[in-house]
């Protein structure tokens, strides 16, 4: 219980800091020095709430020199506020959502215990891999899609560069057969593979028809989990197009969804598709999405 109390104290202090910021106006934020953010981050880490510290760090990392930073800032601040409120009213929430809030604050899930639960056995298509690095800590995100279950999953792997190697490696564009257990959540996505064996199953397309279905899913998602992570979607026909000097993905109904700013490998996507509409795998949430692979023919090609 000691930890919960410390987190509560940390949250109280964070809330005062946020309110203070709003009272003074956020217009001066771009001029704030590093210490302004670092103090709060450090206090949250001391309060054993690394998840919240990470959310503050994301706010710190916003490109304040770019036009429109206010919109991004406000969205992230409000998401942080929702998590705080969730934690402060944890008992009132449904049990699965409680787990989401706890994980967002930084409480870990005992993975050994998780492995003892029964998972979903399926052939999982490895549709994409995203890797990032911060302070020599490498984070790998593998996006999986169940051939029979039709469910998507996110497998995370962390390791310190130069100190330890990756525990496992999944090759995008391949498929594995195995049992997968989801982390407890109101809308399970993050998972771990209990067993995994490479198979030669072809990666056939299966998925949604249009952006409309994606948006329906997102509406359902935020009714269950207001602060939700990026999701994996496979959509039957998307075409990368330029509209008002910005990249969009156009579906069969000629509806446009923005491509995530800075999304890598767009030129590779254009090279493979030649500008034609094709079944595509995308990762994202809200208003922008990043393509991670495409089906130019019967075979999937990861970007």
């Amino acid at each position: 219980m000691a930890r919960e109390a410390r987190v509560n104290d940390g949250i109280g202090e964070l809330l005062r800091w946020m309110k203070d910021m709003l009272r003074n106006g956020i217009i001066h934020l771009p001029e704030k020095n590093q210490a302004y953010w670092e103090n709060t981050i450090r206090r949250l880490i001391d309060a054993q709430a690394p998840g919240l510290a990470g959310m503050v760090r994301n706010i710190q990392d916003i490109a304040y020199f770019r036009e429109g930073w206010q919109e991004v800032f406000l969205q992230q601040l409000l998401k942080l506020y929702i998590v705080i409120q969730g934690y402060q009213h944890l008992e009132a929430l449904p049990a699965p959502l409680q787990q989401d809030v706890r994980q967002l604050c930084g409480f870990t899930v005992n993975q050994e215990q998780l492995k003892s639960f029964q998972g979903i056995t399926d052939t999982w298509m490895v549709l994409g891999k995203q890797a990032s690095e911060q302070d020599k800590l490498v984070t790998e995100r593998y996006w999986l899609y169940g051939v029979n279950s039709g469910r998507s999953a996110l497998i995370l792997q962390f390791y310190a560069r130069h100190f330890s190697g990756a525990g496992f490696s999944l090759q995008p564009g391949t498929a594995v057969h195995g049992e997968l257990v989801y982390f407890p959540s109101a809308q399970p996505l993050r998972a771990l593979l209990k067993t995994c064996q490479l198979t030669h199953t072809p990666l056939r397309f299966r998925g949604m028809e249009s952006w409309e279905e994606v948006l329906e899913h997102q509406s359902m998602l935020c009714s269950q989990l207001p602060v939700y992570p990026e999701q994996l979607y496979t959509i039957a026909s998307l075409q990368l197009v330029q509209y008002r000097q910005q990249w969009y993905l156009m579906d069969r109904q000629r509806r446009l969804m923005a491509v995530k700013p800075g999304a890598p490998k767009l030129w590779k996507l254009l090279a493979i598709t030649g500008g034609q509409a094709m079944p595509m795998a995308v990762v994202g949430a809200g208003r922008d999405y990043e393509p991670i692979g495409v089906w130019p023919d019967a075979h999937y090609q990861a970007l």
Partner: peptide, 26 residues
């Protein structure tokens, strides 16, 4: 903060796509 939290969720639950109009893709 509370109004913002409500509006944020209201907005994200009602995201819409843009119409492509007469866009011709190369």
């Amino acid at each position: 903060l509370k109004t913002g939290a409500v509006l944020l969720n209201y907005r994200q639950a009602g995201i819409t796509t843009l119409p492509a109009d007469n866009l011709s893709a190369a």
